[in-house]
């Protein structure tokens, strides 16, 4: 579904991604783990075309996307949920969803506002509320719902559990499992190992812009020294 090979990216002169490679297969939930500043968000931005990749290849559903502008990538069915959520604060919940709307896609689950409100029941009660007047957890649900309005084949979720109360984190995990059940691929950036273990099939560990580990979630769970070396703070 999504294949990244030898991807490099820079902010000005700073070399942030140093040739990373990984993949997410159809219907799979893959976690990208790593400490603060490891380059997880940058990897997602580079895939999305928001940070232009300097070298390397990204292909998605059989198409090279590493030279495409972000809107073309989104239209191929790759959804992006940014870490900062980036809700349109002046727009209501319904309008935020409207901005994310794209035409239906063959062989991909289609989403409507009503279907999303069953996935995130909290949102149903605040259809006309401006995005700026929602709690962090509600905004996190809205930003995911907004991306799903584009009927993606695969979503990039940047730290969906960040800053959420434990009960909402659980709800978020269930929602991601629902997405997987619908047949979506998910690439997840996380610092919360526990959360990742609840939802992901496989994991990659990234540090200083390089991939240090790739394997199943079970392998990672079995290897304490690996977690100690790259993930503990």
């Amino acid at each position: 579904m999504l294949t990244v090979s030898n991807l490099h990216a820079y902010y000005g002169r700073a070399h942030i991604l140093d040739g990373i490679s990984f993949e997410a297969k159809a219907g799979e939930v893959v976690a990208l783990l790593g400490r603060n500043g490891a380059g997880k968000s940058t990897a997602m931005k580079a895939i999305m075309g928001l940070v232009p990749p300097a070298r390397g290849e990204v292909s998605f559903a059989g198409t090279r996307i590493d030279r495409l502008p972000p809107y073309r990538i989104a239209r191929l069915g790759l959804g992006y949920v940014p870490e900062e959520r980036r809700i349109f604060t002046e727009l209501s919940v319904m309008e935020n969803l409207e901005v994310g709307r794209q035409a239906a896609r063959d062989g991909v689950p289609g989403w409507s506002e009503d279907k999303l409100f069953t996935l995130f029941p909290n949102l149903a009660a605040m259809r006309d509320r401006p995005g700026g007047r929602m709690s962090g957890g509600e905004q996190q649900m809205l930003t995911i719902a907004r991306t799903l309005m584009g009927n993606p084949r695969c979503v990039l979720l940047d730290e969906p559990s960040e800053g959420l109360a434990p009960i909402i984190v659980e709800q978020m995990a269930r929602s991601i499992q629902t997405l997987k059940g619908e047949g979506l691929s998910v690439l997840l950036c996380e610092q919360n190992l526990h959360f990742s273990q609840a939802v992901a099939d496989r994991a990659y560990i990234i540090e200083k812009g390089q991939i240090r580990f790739g394997g199943s979630m079970a392998e990672l769970a079995a290897d304490a020294s690996l977690r100690e070396q790259y993930l503990s703070v």
């Binding site: 999305m48 928001l50 502008p69 972000p70 809107y71 989104a74 239209r75 992006y80 940014p82 980036r86 349109f88 604060t89 002046e90 727009l91 309008e95 935020n96 409207e98 901005v99 994310g100 709307r101 794209q102 907004r146 991306t147 584009g150």
Partner: peptide, 22 residues
């Protein structure tokens, strides 16, 4: 919809692009 896109782009045009809007 056009109005929603315009208001959204007024705030964050990059995000509007990442959501598939040309």
């Amino acid at each position: 919809r056009w109005g929603a896109l315009v208001r959204a782009a007024t705030q964050d045009r990059e995000m509007v692009g990442a959501l598939g809007v040309d």
